[in-house]
Amino acid sequence: MKIVKEALAGTLESSDLLVKVSPGPGTGLEVVISSEVMQQFGLQIDHVVRDTLARLGVTAGLVVVEDKGALDCAIRARVQTAVMRGAEAQTIDWSALS
């Protein structure tokens, strides 16, 4: 999936996260994460975000995540939504979301 425009998903409420995606300045994929629980769960959050992006076939763009202590399922959901909005996806490949 190709990110063609800037898009947001999620909130800054507790147990949620805000994900911002954009085409990015370069050609590669850049992921920037900030979290209230970065020390304990930073690696896990990074893994979930990158795995979700890989399943969606996202190989380029800038992904900025501001986490407020969300569970993995919420992280996946917000990244998926932001990417689909940023890619202006008209259909959903459900197998890529599972």
């Binding site: 399922c73 919420a74 996946r76 959901a77 917000r78 998926q80 939504t81 979301l97």
Partner: peptide
């Protein structure tokens, strides 16, 4: 759209 994906997960 975001609610649907959140509930799915």
């Amino acid at each position: 759209d975001s609610a649907r994906i959140l509930v799915f997960n």
